[in-house]
């Protein structure tokens, strides 16, 4: 543990792992992506980054969550979970054009130990589509976190926030358009959370979200290997908020959502 006078910022400057026990990254991916270079996109490399930074657990989906190749991707995530037990947890992904790639695939992954569901509308299927309904129902019934890729436009999903109130819904890339596009949903719905990952790392955004939505409604996500872990956690560690609020964002909220020991 750091001395009383050593802040989290000091630990970053000293290039040492953050001293908070149990930091959770709620948003990482596995695998490569044709359009971009992504060195270090395998599970071993990402666990090495987690060790350097001091992240205990990361919840992972595969890049294939954006494609029809979800079964391949989910298998890769399961392999990463086996290779790094307790360090890599899994989000199940579907391409719900039929039951096999939809609800059945989600059940297969959850039965194998995945802890949540990741939906990405790059597959051109809206989260409100009827084909997602059995998946939403299952997540809600089991109280599993659902991570939604978002980029503003959240009004289109409000019916889901109203209907599926037992599953924590994490809005990825919160603030990516404007803070105003995100804050009201986290304020209005107790089970809707803000996931921080955003490539732009706008100055003052973390402080704004904490002030308006509260630190208890925010979880940390890095989007590694789309973005470097150190960069994304740096914007939380150096944010002008209290150390307890940083702890809530980096540790407590995610562990509560995942049902992990505090």
């Amino acid at each position: 543990m750091p001395s009383a006078s050593e802040s989290l910022c000091d630990r970053v400057r000293a290039r040492r792992p953050l001293p908070l026990d149990g930091i959770v990254d709620m948003h990482i991916h596995l695998g490569s992506w044709a359009a971009f270079a992504m060195p270090g996109n395998d599970a071993d490399s990402m666990v090495r980054q987690m060790d350097r930074v001091g992240v205990a657990v990361a919840v992972c989906s595969h890049q294939a969550c954006m494609t029809p190749e979800v079964a391949y991707g989910n298998d890769q995530v399961l392999e990463a979970m086996r290779r790094h037990p307790g360090r890599i947890l899994g989000y199940a992904s579907a391409y719900p054009v039929n039951d096999t790639l939809g609800i059945d695939e989600i059940r297969r992954c959850l039965d194998a130990g995945m802890v949540g569901v990741k939906m990405h509308n790059a597959n051109r299927i809206p989260y409100t589509a009827e084909r997602y309904t059995p998946i939403w129902r299952l997540a809600n019934e089991r109280r599993l976190p659902v991570l939604l890729h978002t980029w503003g436009g959240l009004g289109a999903h409000e019916r889901l926030f109203e209907e599926y109130t037992d599953c924590p819904i994490l809005l990825a890339h919160s603030g990516s358009t404007r803070a105003d596009d995100y804050v009201p949903w986290a304020v209005r719905y107790p089970h809707v959370y803000l996931d921080l990952e955003f490539s732009g790392c706008p100055n003052g955004l973390v402080e704004c979200l904490v002030r308006r939505a509260s630190a208890e409604k925010i979880v940390f996500g890095s989007d590694m290997p789309w973005m470097p872990l150190g960069q994304q956690i740096g914007r939380v560690v150096f944010a002008d908020i209290a150390e307890e609020q940083k702890r809530a964002i980096l540790v407590d909220n995610a562990r509560r959502i995942l049902g992990l020991a505090p």
């Binding site: 910022c9 970053v12 400057r13 290039r15 090495r48 980054q49 350097r52 930074v53 732009g200 790392c201 706008p202 100055n203 003052g204 955004l205 973390v206 470097p228 872990l229 150190g230 960069q231 994304q232 956690i233 740096g234 914007r235 939380v236 560690v237 150096f238 944010a239």
Partner: peptide, 23 residues
């Protein structure tokens, strides 16, 4: 700054797996 939060670049550099001289 003020477009980006400076802590992001600091964290990125600090946790890069490079020798102190490169840093």
């Amino acid at each position: 700054y003020p477009i980006a939060e400076p802590g992001a670049a600091i964290g990125h550099l600090a946790y890069a797996d490079i020798p102190p001289g490169d840093l």
